[in-house]
Computed example of a mutant assay.
Amino acid sequence: EGINVLEHTEASEVRYDGQHFILKTNAGTLKAEQLLVATGRTPNTENLDLKTIGVQTERGAITINDRMQTSNSRVYAAGDCTNQPKFVYVAAAGGSRAAINMTGGDAHLDLSAMPEVIFTDPQVATVGLSEADAKTGGYVTESRTLGLENVPRALVNFDTQGFIKIVAESGSGRLLGVQVVAGEAGELIQAAVMAIRAGMTVNELADELFPYLTMVEGL
């Protein structure tokens, strides 16, 4: 698609000559008419004077526990102003639990099986642990990667670009994580979320009935 991706590249200097942005990098000099600088998001909390009420923050993000409670037990927070992952569905789930807890309930937010989707084309989706993260966490893993050319739905779609990867605990076969690159990765990943949440093994997952000619059959 005409996109050139430079890996392990850092810019040391940026200047604008009136027509072009000129970047000096360790991969050479780049010139472009437009420049996008993506540096992440910072919670808009600096004017809330949170210190005066004993609400702790880290780099502007309000620190909360799994009950959405801040360091001030009378104050709750949810969404992108907190130190939780910045996803719409995490914010919605946190908001409902905060409301329950503020009115005397006891609701917790478990992010151990949290899906993440990047809506590129093809989509990229993940849940649980990657192979590298699992090994860092002390797990002995066994992994399998399935190219989409082996998935009938992808063949029918004439789009076999991508793969499905499953990471499991060696021995027990317990599912630890799933990573998907596919046109419908965002739809497929939810089945993996439920399987990880249920503590399923790869054999238990394989024994389930999946509709024929669906992408999720690739699991």
Rank of each mutant, 00 (worst) to 15 (best):
65 N>K: 01
177 G>E: 13
53 I>F: 05
5 V>L: 14
74 R>S: 14
164 I>D: 03
205 L>Q: 01
138 G>E: 13
99 A>N: 05
11 A>P: 10
85 P>Q: 02
168 A>Q: 00
116 E>R: 10
35 L>P: 06
161 Q>L: 14
165 K>E: 08
61 A>M: 04
153 R>D: 14
169 E>C: 00
122 P>A: 05
170 S>C: 09
47 N>K: 12
77 A>K: 08
130 S>Y: 03
115 P>E: 12
86 K>P: 15
163 F>Q: 07
25 T>C: 03
122 P>F: 05
216 V>F: 01
215 M>A: 06
48 L>W: 13
29 T>F: 05
31 K>Q: 14
27 A>L: 07
117 V>W: 11
21 F>A: 09
47 N>H: 11
214 T>N: 03
182 A>V: 07
191 A>Q: 13
49 D>T: 10
205 L>Y: 03
95 G>F: 02
161 Q>S: 13
209 L>K: 07
116 E>M: 13
19 Q>P: 00
165 K>P: 07
142 E>Q: 15
116 E>S: 15
51 K>W: 08
55 V>D: 08
78 A>C: 10
15 R>H: 14
204 E>I: 03
210 F>Y: 09
126 T>R: 10
86 K>L: 15
66 D>S: 14
219 L>K: 03
183 G>R: 09
162 G>R: 06
203 N>K: 08
84 Q>I: 04
168 A>S: 02
162 G>K: 03
163 F>A: 02
202 V>C: 07
217 E>S: 04
28 G>W: 01
56 Q>V: 13
170 S>I: 07
67 R>T: 10
188 L>K: 01
158 F>G: 03
124 V>R: 09
195 A>V: 00
107 A>N: 02
202 V>W: 06
90 V>Y: 11
77 A>D: 07
120 T>G: 06
190 Q>D: 08
168 A>N: 04
143 S>R: 01
129 L>F: 12
136 T>M: 03
107 A>I: 06
57 T>I: 00
72 N>C: 03
164 I>L: 13
13 E>P: 00
2 G>S: 06
102 M>W: 08
152 P>E: 06
30 L>Q: 05
12 S>G: 08
48 L>G: 07
177 G>I: 12
181 V>L: 15
5 V>W: 13
80 D>P: 04
24 K>Y: 08
145 T>L: 07
133 D>H: 01
19 Q>L: 12
91 A>S: 15
29 T>A: 08
215 M>Q: 02
62 I>C: 00
78 A>F: 09
74 R>A: 15
175 L>G: 04
